[in-house]
Structures are given as C-alpha cells and as structure tokens.
Computed example of a mutant assay.
Amino acid sequence: MIVVSAASGALGRLVVAALLDRMPADQVVAAVRDPARVADLAARGVVVRRGDYDDPGSLRAAFEGADRLLLISSPELDTRRRTRQHLAAIEAAVAEGVGAIAYTSFLGADRGGDGMNAAHHATERVLLDSGAAHTVLRHPFYTDAFVDAGIGAAAESGRLVSAAGGRGLNTATRADLADAAAAVLTGDGHTGRAYDLTGPLWTYPQLAAAIGDATGRPVVHEEADAVPGAMGFLMTLARSGALERQTDDLHHLLGRPPTSLRQAVADAVDTCPDGALSEGAESD
C-alpha cells in the first residue's frame, strides 16, 4: 500500500493519478486534511484517510499499513512550523513502520539551510537521522507557473516582459515530477538516493515564441530591469544564474525526456478556458 500525503493539492492529485495507472486503486491511500475535498478520488476506489500535518495522531492513522509514503512538503511558509509538520510526519511514519519514505524537497537543500530551503534542509537531516529508508526528490520551480503567467500576459497585451537577463530556467512540469515520484514509489533501487530533478533549460524569448506559435498570435518579448511581485523574485534568481543547474535525474526516473517548453505551452493553451485568449485580444 502506498500513501500520498497532501493528496488534495495539485501535485498530490497528479501523483495519485500516476499511481492509478500502475496499481489497483485500493492500494493507494490519499492522506488529506479534509477528506471531503477528494470525494472524486474515493469514487474511483482510492482509500481516503484524514492526515493533518498539525495533528500527529491523524498522521499515524493515515500511514497505518503503508509500505511506502510520499511525503509532499507542506505549503506552510513559516520555517519553524513547516519543519515541525515534516518532523511529525516522519515520526508518524517511523512509528507505523512505513517501509520507505520519499520526500519532495527542493534543489539546493543539501547545500545549506538558508531562506526558502531552510525547512527542506532541516527535513532532509531529520530523515537521515531517523534511520528510515528514504529517497529525496529535490524539485525545481514548476514550469506551469511561468507558462500560465506568460500566456496571461500575452493574451492581454501581446507582450511578454521579463527581467531574467536572458538566462536559462531549469523548471519542470508538475506532471513530470508527479510521474517521477510514482516511478520511485513503485520501483526498486531508489532507497538512499537523492535526485536533483531539472527540466530542459529555456529562456523568456523562447517562451514568447512558444506562446505565439501555440496561439497563432505574435508575442513580443521585452527585457526589463525588474518586474513586480513573486515573479520578479523568481526572475532575479534566474538573472543570477541560480536556475541553470542541469542533471539527468528527471530523465532517468521518467525513462523519457522531460516535457519541453513548447509542449508545456501547447498543453496549457489547449486547456485554457473557452474565450480566455479572445477576451485578452479584445482588450487591446
């Protein structure tokens, strides 16, 4: 039996879907804070259990009988609380005798515990010290976030503004990362391994071109000194070269090349709500 924690989230749902392609539904457990949010999974035969990162008792019940567990990192932003939640999950898994734990960490967490990687670094250390069989899956940023934001900008104005300085980004799609997790959970030879997962490098001019090709509308890329908000922070990282690291780990786990930027854009355009792009064009 395989348990997926935080299974009601975007990544968790994709992992569950990938597992259902590989094994019977009654051998997949969706551990979630609110079981009502995954009634659709229960209808497909998935075992649904309450598992709240802030309720250690619920975690033990959720992990009971598990051969393997995917511990999806908490979305909590406070480092101390997030670390505490992960520790509670690891302690519950060890107490229940879970055979192996796979944890979704972040690229660079092995190199230090500063900033956004603090909780990931601490969790990796706790996993190592726990003595539990485990695998670390260090994720990059999601391609989906950049593509969705880019399509939105292009639909509104036909322009895509970035401040990445032409540097590359090594993002990966959620779907690819979910497939990689499912491969680890259902395969052998991963215990004791840490995978640094990266997708193919891409640049903002390439994103603009891909959006133009997928929508049939010209999209002009413009380079700025800075952009506001969370995307501006990510572009600052890109401009520094921090997102250009490359490995073959994701390719290895998938058994195929990771999804290209062009394919990710094409998929996103195909799933845009009806009229979303045309509404953007009408506002020009």
Rank of each mutant, 00 (worst) to 15 (best):
D78M: 04
W202K: 06
I151E: 04
A25N: 06
A95C: 05
A133Y: 10
V219I: 15
S283H: 14
D248V: 12
G216E: 07
R50F: 09
Y195W: 14
D196C: 07
G255C: 10
A42M: 05
F106G: 03
R82L: 08
H120Y: 01
F106C: 05
T83M: 00
Q263W: 09
A102Q: 02
D54Y: 14
G216Y: 00
A132D: 04
R68W: 08
S105T: 12
L87N: 01
A122S: 10
A109M: 03
D40G: 01
R193L: 10
S5D: 07
A276F: 12
D55I: 01
V126I: 15
A92S: 09
A224E: 10
L197N: 10
E222Y: 09
L77S: 07
A172L: 05
R60I: 11
T135L: 00
L177A: 02
R217A: 15
F106N: 02
M231R: 12
A10S: 12
A7Y: 10
D188C: 06
E64Q: 14
E223K: 15
V15I: 06
G131S: 09
G280K: 04
R84L: 13
T83E: 01
M235P: 11
G241D: 08
A88L: 00
G229F: 09
G65S: 05
V48Q: 02
A276H: 10
A164I: 14
E64G: 13
T247M: 08
L197C: 15
L237N: 09
G112Q: 07
